[in-house]
Every structure is written in C-alpha cells, then in structure tokens.
Amino acid sequence: MLEKIKTSIVNFGNGTEEAVKNALDENFKIGEIINAISQGLDKVGNLYENREYFLSELILSGEAAKKGIELILPHLDKEKSGITGTIVFGTIKGDVHDIGKTIVSAFLIGAGFIVHDLGVEVTSEQFIESVKEKEADIVALSTLLTNTMPYMKVIIDDLKKEGLRGKIKVIVGGRPVSEDFAREIGADGFAKNPFDAKEICKNWMKK
C-alpha cells in the first residue's frame, strides 16, 4: 500500500487519496504514510530536475501530496511520530501568486512538517497571529514581485517587536529574492527551490 502511495504521487496524483485512505484503514503508521508521500515527491523532484517532468506535472503531484496529507491531519494528535515541526507559510501582502508556495508546501508536508498555509496577500498581523496560535517553529515568506519584497522586512521586524523572533526561524523565497537580500532583512535562510526549503527546514529542526 505504501508503494501505491509513492507511485500515485509520481503519476500526478492518480489514486493518491484512495491509497492514503486504504493505508489509514489498514492501520499503517502516520510516519510511514508521510514517508511514502515524501519518497514520491523526491522522485518527482528528480524527474523535474532532469527535465523529464515539467512545471505543470510538478504542480499536479504537489497538489496530490497536499490532498493526501489533509486526510492524515485528523490522525496527527493520535500519533506524533513522523512530525518534524510546524510551519506558518504565506505569500506576503501585495502579492497574489500561489503556485510556487503550493509546490514548496507540498515538499515540506512530505518531509513531515505541519504546514499552515495562510494563502496570499498575508499581512504581518496575520502571520503573527498564526505563529502564536499554532506555536510555529518556522515562518516561511514568499513573493514573486520585486515591489513587495520590502514587506518581508516589515514582517520580520514586527516579529521582533512581539518578542517572537528568538523563538522561530524565518525562511524567505520567490523569484526576485536572493540570499544577500535575505541576509539584509534579517531572515535566517533563503530557498531558491522546494528542495532547498525542505533541507534547510529539516536541518533547523535537528538542532
């Protein structure tokens, strides 16, 4: 059944929800199911990097992974194994782009993170409220627009004012964002792609 989950992710989500439901019915451990989803996403990522898959296929597989995880969420309180950490994720105020965030979220979820996706046009106040409510370990900020980039610093500064900055890590990303910019605004990390985001966040949680 776990192999079916992995294969379904690679096949653009054909049968993912059914396979996850069956795995839950057969009492597979949550960590095992998450790992199967993660392996599927890793395979998709390799195919994309080798130019065997295109962006549209990456998105389909990412959406399938998110749907599979949604089926698992009600069971997480019963079994904490396999949970890496909690992330609050959003496209910042002024930007309505969603595709990149959706893909990155799927990879983070596949790596065992609980990801609270706040959507697009997310304000500093919304990030802060969610960090407090969800007791987040990491805040992920995304934008594809150059003119909205300065708002990332506003959010980081507001987190400091609320006394939250020392308790969480902040990772930023998006087409116009760079490592130098991330450093300038006081972010802890910069991810240029979903694979970087996953590895950076996983490494933070190991420390």
Rank of each mutant, 00 (worst) to 15 (best):
V177W: 09
T7D: 15
K206M: 11
A187Q: 05
E135H: 10
I185V: 13
A64N: 07
S105V: 12
T7L: 11
E17P: 08
K78Q: 13
S38T: 00
L47C: 05
P176H: 10
K192L: 11
V20E: 09
H116T: 15
E18R: 14
I109P: 02
D188H: 10
G186L: 03
E26H: 12
K167E: 14
G186M: 10
K161E: 15
E17Q: 13
G68M: 06
S61T: 09
G186T: 09
E32S: 11
V139C: 02
F54S: 04
S142F: 03
K202G: 06
K43T: 13
V10H: 06
K167G: 11
A19S: 15
L55W: 02
V131F: 02
E26D: 14
S124D: 09
E3V: 10
E26M: 12
K134G: 01
S130G: 07
V96H: 01
I87Q: 00
V172W: 03
G45A: 05
A191S: 12
M149L: 10
K29M: 11
K192T: 10
A64K: 06
N35Y: 07
V139N: 02
P150W: 09
E18F: 08
D42K: 09
K160A: 14
I185A: 11
V44K: 02
I9A: 05
V154S: 15
I34K: 11
G45E: 04
G40F: 07
G100V: 00
K207R: 13
